[in-house]
């Protein structure tokens, strides 16, 4: 199977270039397995990021045949040849398929993504876990399992055009916290959520929904935050 991989070392290349490799594909191999095959058999200089190889860590998000995917979860049997592999969009390339996630996490940080207890110091005694009826969590539970892979951020056309826009993952986190009935001290996030980079910058294109590898609907979270703002 032919892999075409976008190679780029910003410290010495003027622009990215595509390189082709013929990968010896065996059953059940993923795109990530294909990249390892290239590294071990064809080109020991290829760079890519990985960790868990099971869709849990969100380290290996990239763009495969034009669409965001976790390389470890996309089986080659389901991919059209030649396979075009390139780094996530809207993030600076460190080398080849490895992007700098700093802008993504800076924007995530802007929504105060941490749960705030009344006494937040972890060294103090903790209250008993809150009594929470499962039915009250039905919606928020669906939006909870973000693995911060950056796929939605890469797929979002507003992120690409508006450097202020916080992006789907950060706003989804803001929604999850706003809907968490346990959090005693919510409220400080409004400025980020309603500011220039917040929910009102979203154009509801919905690429984030299709891009999310774990089935979260960030667009829904953004719409719920908007609705909450109007209701208030």
């Amino acid at each position: 199977m032919i892999f075409r991989v976008k190679r780029f070392d910003p410290t010495c290349d003027r622009r990215p270039s595509w390189r082709a490799y013929t990968v010896d594909v065996r059953p059940k191999m993923s795109v990530l397995d294909g990249l390892f095959w290239i590294l071990e058999h064809a080109d020991s200089t290829l760079s890519f990021r990985y960790s868990c190889r099971a869709g849990m860590c969100g380290s290996c998000a990239m763009v495969v045949n034009g669409r965001e995917a976790l390389a470890c979860r996309l089986r080659l049997a389901h991919v059209a040849a030649p396979v075009h592999v390139e780094p996530l969009r809207s993030l600076p390339v460190i080398k080849d398929l490895v992007v700098d996630m700093t802008p993504f996490f800076e924007k995530y940080r802007a929504v105060d993504p941490f749960y705030r207890a009344e006494d937040p110091a972890v060294t103090g005694p903790a209250a008993a876990p809150a009594v929470v009826r499962p039915e009250s969590r039905e919606l928020v539970d669906l939006q909870l399992g973000c693995i911060s892979c950056g796929a939605c951020y890469s797929a979002c056309p507003v992120v690409a055009l508006n450097p202020e826009f916080l992006g789907p993952a950060a706003l989804n986190r803001a929604y999850v916290l706003s809907a968490d009935e346990r959090e005693p001290a919510a409220g400080d996030r409004a400025a980020a959520i309603l500011g220039d980079g917040g929910v009102h910058a979203c154009h509801a294109v919905g690429n984030c929904v299709a891009a999310c590898p774990v089935g979260i609907n960030p667009l829904l979270s953004i719409q719920l935050l908007r609705k909450g703002a109007t209701d208030r």
Partner: peptide, 13 residues
């Protein structure tokens, strides 16, 4: 209890 009440983990109920 700390993971739930301080750190914000949500475990199944």
């Amino acid at each position: 209890r700390k993971l739930e009440a301080k750190i914000g983990c949500f475990f199944d109920r």
